[in-house]
Design a protein around this nucleic acid. Structure first.
Lengths: 209, 209
DNA sequence: CGGCGTCTCCTCCCGGGGGAGGAGATACTG
DNA sequence: CAGTATCTCCTCCCCCGGGAGGAGACGCCG
């Protein structure tokens, strides 16, 4: 059972969302908030799995509410649901920690699917939003991260993941190799890049891209 | 019925994908290509709805093949399916016109769902890939990136030095405090910034300026 | 063929990182 | 004054990170 908190200032929309969720056996609406402040307090009291969050709300807005909620309970999945005109707030919302971004004119199935995927750790995005995201990424990704000279392909893989802050165990899982192998590569990387510790190595990973 | 073309140089993988698709009533594998050149000719002849495309292939690679196919038939949905190490090619693949990007170690349901979503005009991405995409987009976005709210002055000092790659002992010497004090501050920093390890904390230090 | 590089994995060892929990000292504020 | 926040430091404890040293498998190349 996925426990859902609805946060939207328009009562009509909340009612519609509640009806939609109530018709699904695996979704349970545990509460409704009419503004950001209510969303924060209700999130703390009800500990929902997923919060469906509008951005335009009186008083505390959705982005601030998202930050506050996640500071308190980082495991909460915040799914932003807003109108098309608000997608200027896409990046602020993502920076605040929202895991997904759906538009209100999406078909109901997409919304329900989005809630389930959010609860499962996925990141649902509406098609238009995703297109914008991809555009931003590709235009920004013109610089293809030049690799540090003198490293083997595998060492580059490991270096990238160190740079993202993964532990040795996580790297091993991601690359499907043993943890001792990861350690071997990291030892090689540290001597090659002359890094005294792991954080410096991570910095090298970012200097190279 | 969704008509699918498989393009991968490893015959075993093609066989697995074909079995997977054949078990689905709405998916039909209309052909298999072992390299980029084959993919181009087969795409022109068979006019599939979706092409599942590997990137590493002998001769013509997947990215070039994607460009060529889309130049001829822009309505074709190209879904890149590749291994983790290849996600350096994420942006080139998107620029070439691929509509989605899945990893080979994804569960089978994710792949099948991805093919359906690609055919429906959606853009399926594996979770890890999407995370990278979001990171790129947010870091590229003109975000306000304040100096990490909610930290005390001393915690900021420690965070800066962690970001420079200093060890706890070095930080203690630099700030003229005990090493246990440093550890206390770092513990507070990690909980406040929700960082699972030191490298992530260092990254937070840099995201904040 | 024999060397070389890379990738893989192993054992042994230990110091530092990091969590849990507490405590004393300042200083600000209602 | 009492309450709160911050800075400082402590102990106990565990595990991960990292060094040393070696080894088997594969592919490339002279």
């Amino acid at each position: 059972m996925i426990r859902v908190l609805l946060a939207d200032d328009q009562q009509l929309i909340r009612a519609g969302l509640r009806m939609l969720c109530d018709a699904e056996p695996d979704l349970e609406v545990v509460g409704e908030a009419g503004n950001g402040r209510e969303a924060i307090t209700l999130a703390a009291r009800l500990t929902p799995d997923v919060i469906v969050m509008d951005l335009r709300m009186p008083g505390v807005d959705g982005i601030s509410a998202t930050s506050r909620v996640l500071a308190d309970r980082p495991a909460t999945r915040v799914l932003v649901l807003t109108t098309f005109g608000d997608d200027d707030h896409l990046y602020p919302a993502l920076n605040a920690g929202a895991c997904g971004f759906l538009l209100k004119d999406a078909p109901p199935e997409e919304l329900l699917d989005g809630i389930r995927r959010a609860a499962a750790g996925d990141s649902p995005f509406s098609r238009d939003v995703l297109r914008r995201l991809v555009n931003r990424a590709t235009s920004a990704g013109a610089a293809p991260r030049r690799p540090v000279e003198g490293l083997t392909a595998r060492e580059q893989d490991v270096l990238d993941l160190v740079g993202e802050g993964l532990s040795n165990t996580e790297i091993a899982e991601r690359l499907h190799i043993g943890i001792t192998t990861v350690k071997s590569h990291i030892t090689a990387l540290m001597t090659k890049t002359n890094s005294p510790n792991r954080v410096r190595l991570a910095l090298v990973a970012h200097r190279g891209g």
